[in-house]
Design a protein around this nucleic acid. Structure first.
Lengths: 245, 245
DNA sequence: CAATTTTCATATGTCAGACATTTAATGTTT
DNA sequence: AAACATTAAATGTCTGACATATGAAAATTG
């Protein structure tokens, strides 16, 4: 691990990169201890502040964890599915909001991805997955549910659908994509009529998965996609009109 | 933005979280300047080192950029598709390697996602996308191509397929997933026979997209998925045998 | 001897102050 | 008006100090 003192980049960034590359490249294994801050100072010939800034960068990326005390130090951290997903959600959410991604693009991406796991889910969904879906459908029908809670439940429903595929990698990728859509979905006002329609489609999806009918699930998902798109367009129009006046 | 001095968490982590929440919550817009380090010291009542460690954490997440000099400071950064994707690739790659995800799971996830955009790509692919695919197919047939280069080209081919859907959000999500698979794919040794088979399937996919036949593309992708899975299994077996002896 | 308590060494966490460097705006000279 | 010099404000880096947490070894005690 070496750094280039000539480079214009910050020393702490260079050091972070050097250590990150070592971790990603497999030179350091999970739970292995990094040299202490003082040792890193000597190794890179910089001050402790600089080393610490580098370590904080790595900590921010969940690459290391630190422990105080006698046997403490910085340790290579095992990235869990949950953490990875949380990171993915944060990144995707920011990407969508900062780049003014329109509803249609995001919606299309979301349902395209979701349909990808419909056949797998039809094949492998557990009774647990189905129970979750039914429970969320029931929740969606409760009177007095706020739009935001309705969206939460919607996400939970789709989460169960995705988890049904029994592939943790797929779940991680898709859950990130679906959750990142939430801020956009939350701009929609769901009337009772809208909700009834969505609940009906959700029920059809659950039924199809129950019957292990992947093709049917795919068709209904496609209908749900179209319907969501319509609602989104209306919400955007309403928003545009309000902005004018 | 406030922090809790009673909390056991590091001050720099708390400060980073406070600022991060402000950015994600839309309280700060892109290119807005954060208070200077000295001002943040006063605001949170901590030393400059602590503030700097917090800022480095945010910089590591691509949430801010810093500029030196008179009109310098820390600015909220616009997250680009490329950066978001790079982050996604890093996270996914680490997740796969650190959790010993097996080839079959990763492969299944990859092709499931890829098939999701086949119909869209068949509909919208540009001549450019097709040209890229043909070029990569040609490259894959070159004699003396190393296994690693062959994988690179494979990724580039699939990247073109995904980009053909004309949905940047979809491209971002999928490219991350596909690229993260590369270390696993690189464990496979591609014989000439294997390559010929893959090239044939790639050609069929390109032809199908050219003809805007989404269903056909989907079928061939499914065959490619099966074939890749077989190759992966063989590679894993060979590896296991080597380990035994 | 065993259990408990104390001490201690070693880490990271935080602070304070100094100097270096970069950069744009301002002032000065030609 | 253009070129140059000055300056102020900001981040980047270094040094040294102290605070705090924590495990291990040493001392004490029943």
């Amino acid at each position: 691990m070496k750094i280039d003192p000539q480079s214009s980049a910050d020393l702490s960034a260079q050091i972070a990169k050097a250590i990150r590359d070592a971790i990603i490249g497999g030179e350091m294994i999970v739970d292995e201890r990094l040299p202490s801050e003082t040792e890193l100072c000597d190794q890179f010939d910089v001050s402790r502040s600089t080393v610490r800034e580098a370590l904080k960068r790595l900590a921010a990326q969940n690459l290391i964890r630190t422990q105080r005390g006698a046997t403490g130090g910085a340790f290579v951290r095992r990235l869990s599915y949950d953490e990875a997903q949380a990171q993915h959600v944060t990144t995707s959410t920011l990407l969508l909001s900062m780049n003014a991604v329109d509803f249609e693009t995001a919606c299309e991406a979301r349902f395209a991805l979701e349909r990808a796991c419909a056949p797998l889910s039809a094949e492998r969904r557990t009774p647990d997955n189905l129970a979750t879906m039914r429970a969320e459908i029931h929740r969606q029908g409760q009177p007095g549910l706020s739009d935001e809670r309705f969206c939460d439940s919607d996400v939970a429903f789709h989460r169960a659908l995705v988890d049904g595929a029994g592939n943790p990698v797929l779940s991680y990728q898709l859950a990130g994509a679906v959750e990142a859509m939430q801020p956009l979905m939350n701009m929609i006002t769901f009337t009772q009529r809208n909700r009834d329609q969505i609940i009906a489609l959700h029920t059809q999806i659950a039924d199809a998965l129950d019957a292990q009918d992947g093709a049917k699930a795919d068709i209904v998902l496609s209908q749900l996609s179209d319907y969501t798109l319509t609602l989104g367009r209306q919400a955007m129009e309403a928003r545009a009109n309000r902005a004018k006046s």
